[in-house]
């Protein structure tokens, strides 16, 4: 086995620039995904049956089909269907947000259900309307409880983001492949981005720990 990292050193800045692409992609997908997931979770606990059905059907579609297929469908079929030439990054964020919403909505629903029903009754007895009750009283407590699960979901998003390399987004993964194609060395660039992914996930885990400690202030 002879490793030659020397040859890929000139390509390092190119690879490192992929960190920003991957990070931005993950952050956007998580933000849109959790927002949409929260809305879906509210539909799932709603008293109105058609809304519940819709949310459950939505979840079953996105959980029941491969993510890479959803990605390909959005990227390649959108121009064909509506004539809009969607960029790879748009297609990626769009698909990942919709997909993540399906998964996180289940987590958030469970988190809301786990908040003591007395909290709802106390809010109601004070005349607090539904929206502020959810936003100020129920959801903050729900999110605190499900933070570890949401961190897991974000980590999954970060790692799965490598899938967007298949539609041509120049993320970390894609850049490793480009460098491999130029230098005919596979192990070195892939190992480098592997380490980068790992470090990013560890950083995310640490940040989540700090956040969790902050949220436990009131315990």
């Amino acid at each position: 086995m002879n490793l030659d990292f020397g040859q890929i050193v000139p390509s390092l800045p190119f690879i490192l620039n992929g960190i920003l692409v991957t990070l931005r992609f993950t952050v956007l997908s998580a933000l849109f995904g959790f927002t949409l997931g929260t809305l879906l979770s509210l539909l799932k606990i709603s008293n109105i049956k058609p809304l519940r059905w819709f949310a459950e059907f939505y979840t079953s579609i996105f959980r029941g089909t491969p993510l890479i297929l959803q990605l390909a469908l959005v990227y390649f079929a959108t121009p064909q269907l509506i004539g809009y030439k969607i960029t790879p990054i748009e297609a990626g964020v769009f698909t990942f947000s919709l997909n993540s919403a399906a998964y996180s909505s289940e987590t958030i629903r469970a988190g809301i259900m786990a908040v003591d029903k007395g909290q709802r009754e106390a809010s109601m007895s004070l005349g607090v309307p539904y929206r502020p009750m959810m936003l100020d009283i129920i959801l903050p407590q729900a999110f605190k409880n499900i933070l570890p699960a949401l961190v897991n979901e974000t980590i999954a998003l970060l790692k799965d983001s490598a899938l967007v390399s298949t539609i041509g987004v120049l993320d970390l993964m894609r850049r490793a492949q480009v460098v491999a194609g130029q230098t005919f060395l596979y192990f070195e660039p892939l190992l480098v981005v592997g380490v980068i992914y790992y470090v990013m996930v560890m950083g995310l885990t640490q940040a989540a720990n700090v956040l969790e400690r902050r949220m436990r202030r009131s315990d």
Binding site: D116, G118, Q119, E121, A122, S125, I137, P140, Q141, K144, S218, D219
Partner: peptide, 11 residues
């Protein structure tokens, strides 16, 4: 209303 289990907002 005052409840048996207080139901203060813990956060």
């Amino acid at each position: 209303m005052v409840f048996q289990h207080f139901n203060l907002f813990p956060h």
